[in-house]
Amino acid sequence: MANASTGGHVQGLGATMRKDAWWQGPALTAGILSLWLVYYAFAAAQGKYYSAGPYISPFYIAYEHPASVTDMSPGYAWFGFWPDSWPAFFPPALVMGALPGMFRMTCYYYRKAYYRSFFGMPPGCAVGPVPHDYRGETFLLVFQNLHRYTLYIAIALLPLLYLDAIKGLWYDGRPGIGLGTVLLGANAVLLTGYTLGCHAWRHLVGGKLNCFSCDGASEARHGLWGRVTWLNERHQQFAWSSLIMIAICDIYIRSVSMGVIPDINTWSGVTWIGDFH
């Protein structure tokens, strides 16, 4: 039934009576995410320059090409080398990126971010969405309900990031630390903050309980839930800072590896890529 009265409201994509710059947030989100994805595609497709000295880019966790292995290389291929027959058009870095990528794609925070900024469902609060037969997450998007399984993968990957950062504390047969180590360490911490602040995790560790004080186990889970809640309240901040930190780590290591900048470390001060071997 057509209602003659609109209350002065407007319909249609992007239509709103708001007077503020509501589009700035989603535009910024779309811009940064797009840039990030473009850079990631480039870095993954490049297939080399992913390591330098004791460092390996977080895009390439657990990856190492046999040809690049030297006496000095720390050995990142935790699960063995990637098979030689792997098709070149699908770089291993894309595979390793897809695993945490699925976690982020189904993440409750990122869903908000990309539904708004990429899909206009809706683009902003009290702003008209893309006109379509909306079915929410009941139909094609029902897979979002399995977010927790991607969480399990993301948790499994966390130790690798720490191992890679710890590797950065040893080079040339002696302990030390470099700027790359610091970046990789920070990256591991931020990713932990992001991963363990997950809404599904918060539910699983304690949120699903209705009584927190009924026995010793629920008391303990309440404590855990409280700590996860602290992280969860900062989920958006961790989502962005960890995402950007991954890229910074890769840019740094790639730049060192390509000889664009030197690493600064305790082993030999300012170290250009050629001096690492």
Partner: peptide
């Protein structure tokens, strides 16, 4: 219809 919510959070904002 809990599945209709796509958690775009405008409810929380207002």
């Amino acid at each position: 219809g809990s599945g209709y919510c796509n958690i775009t959070k405008c409810c929380t904002e207002v």
